[in-house]
Design a protein around this nucleic acid. Structure first.
Ligand SMILES: [Zn+2]
Ligand SMILES: [Zn+2]
Ligand SMILES: [Zn+2]
Ligand SMILES: [Zn+2]
Lengths: 139, 139
DNA sequence: ATTTGGCCGTTATAATATAGCGTCATGTCG
DNA sequence: CGACATGACGCTATATTATAACGGCCAAAT
């Protein structure tokens, strides 16, 4: 969170209270949250806010690189290292729902794309399965 | 399509008219289609069908490995080689919307996951950018 | 002939996401 | 300071994507 502030300050982007609130909610969750989960978390605090507000905050946080969208779940998760994050990969456990973010080089993949003359803009790499812990516990 | 029939026959799965129709629509599109695009294509032929029917056909085709879901677009595309398809990767052009399916080994990726004791079930690899053609044409 | 299981169709509703508009705060420049 | 420009916010409404629940039909198996 402190990091996030610094990053935004450095780039002259405004990390407003609303955006901070949404980021905070994501940071304190160890699972990806849907937009409406975040909405519910806000409204649990007595506010009565509409979806559009959450989506706007999410849009900002996404473009600022502070969070990621998990496409295969329509959910959002905070970035574990916003300062050095590019082409991240995600390991998503289908039992405990936790998500691990791997610093992705994905070199092989992107090279393959380039060989075909394809110019890469954004990569979505999401691997679903069971984490080590859940396998041990036989869940 | 002939392939699809054979595959289903071999596995004693029923490629019913409705499922064939949906597959046909996807096969003859060179872009991924949303469920409601497919619905519209069906209804354009004079029928008046509900979404649930399309989703059911899609579910079957997915589990049969005849089509893929493009998570980052909420859309569906026919598999280019159902007989030997595992861990496919997709190159999605943001200009022409075409999707290329690469026979994915993704070895590096999955190895990385395994190193962490993660047991892989399904991988989503979707790369967005511009295809060679669209770069040339300056689109 | 009867049962069984899968597929289909219908209605309704849930879950996810965006559009459009007016207001307010913040910062800029004369 | 005052006028203006910009962007963030909040509201209402609506679009888009997806599923639930129930009953009928039909083909294959017994
Ligand atoms: Zn990250
Ligand atoms: Zn787990
Ligand atoms: Zn395939
Ligand atoms: Zn293209």
């Amino acid at each position: 969170m402190a990091r996030a502030r610094e990053l935004c300050a450095a780039r002259k982007q405004r990390l407003t209270p609303r955006r901070r609130q949404v980021l905070e909610i994501l940071l304190s969750s160890h699972q990806p949250l849907g937009a409406y989960d975040i909405l519910a978390a806000i409204n649990r605090d007595g506010e009565e806010v509409a979806p559009t507000i959450v989506y706007r905050a999410l849009e900002f946080l996404l473009q600022a690189g502070l969070i990621h969208r998990i496409e295969s779940r329509n959910a959002f998760v905070s970035c574990s290292d916003p300062e050095n994050c590019a082409a991240a990969q995600f390991l998503i456990c289908q039992d405990c729902e936790r998500v691990a973010e791997l610093a992705g080089d994905a070199a092989g993949l992107l090279a393959g794309a380039q060989d075909l003359g394809f110019s890469v803009d954004r990569s979505v790499i999401e691997i679903t399965g069971r984490c080590a812990q859940c396998q041990q516990h036989g869940r």
